[in-house]
C-alpha cells in the first residue's frame, strides 16, 4: 500500500462503571506524506482520543483499542512497546493543546528538547544542545541560546507553543499530530503558528493531522477534512468540496451557527439545537438524529438504523439516510443562502 498512514475501523472503548464509553467507534481514513488532514468536531466527538490511539498512548490504560493503524507499513496496533517508543518522537510526534501541562516545569526548555534527541540518537550533550538551539531558532524563538536555559513558565503562551513544536519536530518526524495547537492562543499568534507549520511541512514533507474545532483553521491549512460526531466520522471530503458542498446536516449546522468575520450573515444565528451526545448512551440509529431537523427526508428510520458512510460525490463520503440528491437540493435551497 502506498498511503503513508492508514487507519481502518479504529475503535477506542473505555469500560466504566456506568457502561462502555465508545469514544471512537469505527473510524477509517488515510493520509499521504506532505498532506494535512483536518479533523473537526466538538468536545467529546472522539478527535483527541483518535490521536492518542495513533501515538499508542492508550497503552497501559483501560482503553480497548481495536482496528488497524498502519504507519508506513508498520502495524501500530500490534507493535511492541519497545518498538513503539522508537517510533514516537522520531517517526511520529504530537503537539498538545496546552504546552504548560505538556512540558515538565522543573527542567529547562533546552534540557527537555535535548532529551527528545538523546532518546533516539547517541549524541553528546553538547551536540544535542547545538541542535536544540538551531531548532528553537527555526521555529522563530528569538535569542535561542538564552531561551534554551529558561523554564517553561518563563515563556509566553505563543513562545511555549513554538517550543513544543520545536520539540515535536526535532527528530524530523514524518507524521505530526497537532491537537488543537492554537486554541489557547491569540489570533495574531495563531496566524504565526499556522504559517510556521505550513513552512515546516514544505521543508520536511511531513504528513500532518490537525485536530481542531475551528473550521476557519481547517480552511486555512487542511487538504482533506474529516468531521466527527459522537465517535464516528460523519463526513470525509477534500477541502474545497467540504466547504463548497458540505453534505451532512451536522456540518451544515456547524457552518450556519458560526458568525462570520467578513459579513453580517443574518440578524440571528441558526444554532444546532440540543447538546452533543453522551458517549455512554449514544442515541440509537444516527447519533445526530435528536438534533437534526432534516430527518423527514430520510429514506430509512434515523432513530433505529445506523447510517453507513457512503460516497455522495467522488472522494466525498457522508453518513446520512437522506438520499444524496435530496441533500444536494436541501443544501442549495436552505443552507447555502444562510452561509
Amino acid at each position: 500500500m502506498d498511503k503513508f498512514l492508514r487507519v481502518n475501523d479504529l475503535k477506542v472503548h473505555f469500560p466504566t462503571d456506568d457502561g462502555v464509553v465508545k469514544a471512537v467507534d469505527g473510524l477509517t481514513f488515510d493520509l499521504e506524506k506532505g498532506k494535512t488532514l483536518g479533523i473537526v468536531g466538538e468536545s467529546g466527538s472522539g478527535k483527541s482520543v483518535t490521536s492518542l490511539a495513533i501515538m499508542g498512548l492508550h497503552r497501559g490504560t483501560r482503553a480497548q483499542v481495536s482496528g488497524e493503524i498502519w504507519l508506513d507499513d508498520q502495524d501500530l496496533i500490534n507493535v511492541s512497546d519497545e518498538e513503539l517508543r522508537g517510533l514516537r518522537g522520531r517517526k511520529m510526534a504530537m503537539i498538545f493543546q496546552d504546552p504548560l501541562s505538556a512540558m515538565h516545569p522543573y527542567y529547562t526548555i533546552g534540557k527537555q528538547l535535548a532529551e527528545a534527541i538523546m532518546v533516539h540518537e547517541k549524541v553528546s550533550k553538547a551536540n544535542a544542545r547545538t541542535k536544540v538551539i538551531e531548532m528553537l531558532g527555526r521555529v522563530g524563538i528569538p535569542n535561542p541560546q538564552r531561551r534554551a536555559d529558561q523554564y517553561p513558565h518563563e515563556f509566553s503562551g505563543g513562545m511555549r507553543q513554538r517550543a513544543m513544536i520545536a520539540m515535536a519536530l526535532i527528530n524530523d518526524p514524518e507524521l505530526l499530530i497537532a491537537d488543537e495547537p492554537t486554541t489557547a492562543l491569540d489570533v495574531t499568534v495563531q496566524a504565526q503558528i499556522l504559517d510556521l507549520m505550513r513552512s515546516l511541512q514544505d521543508e520536511f514533507g511531513s504528513a500532518i493531522i490537525m485536530i481542531t474545532h475551528d473550521l476557519g483553521v481547517v480552511a486555512e491549512i487542511a487538504d482533506d477534512v474529516l468531521v466527527m460526531y459522537g465517535g464516528k466520522c460523519v463526513e470525509y471530503a477534500e477541502l474545497d468540496d467540504a466547504f463548497h458542498r458540505p453534505d451532512h446536516p451536522y456540518t451544515w449546522g456547524l457552518l450556519t451557527s458560526m458568525p462570520r468575520l467578513d459579513r453580517v450573515k443574518s440578524e440571528r444565528l441558526v444554532p444546532v439545537a440540543g447538546n452533543p451526545p453522551s458517549l455512554i448512551n449514544v442515541p440509537p440509529g444516527c447519533a445526530f438524529h435528536p438534533r437534526c431537523t432534516f430527518c423527514d427526508y430520510a429514506a430509512a428510520d434515523c432513530t433505529t438504523v445506523v447510517p453507513e458512510l457512503a460516497p455522495s460525490y467522488p472522494k466525498h463520503d457522508s453518513r446520512c439516510h437522506i438520499p444524496a440528491a435530496k441533500r444536494a437540493e436541501l443544501f442549495a435551497e436552505q443552507i447555502a443562502p444562510r452561509l
Partner: peptide, 18 residues
C-alpha cells in the same frame, strides 16, 4: 488583528499582516 482571523472559506487568499 482582523487579517489574522481564519475565515471558513478555502483558498480565499486574503492579505495577511503578520
Amino acid at each position: 488583528l482582523m487579517s489574522a482571523v481564519p475565515v471558513p472559506e478555502p483558498r480565499r487568499n486574503r492579505e495577511r499582516i503578520l
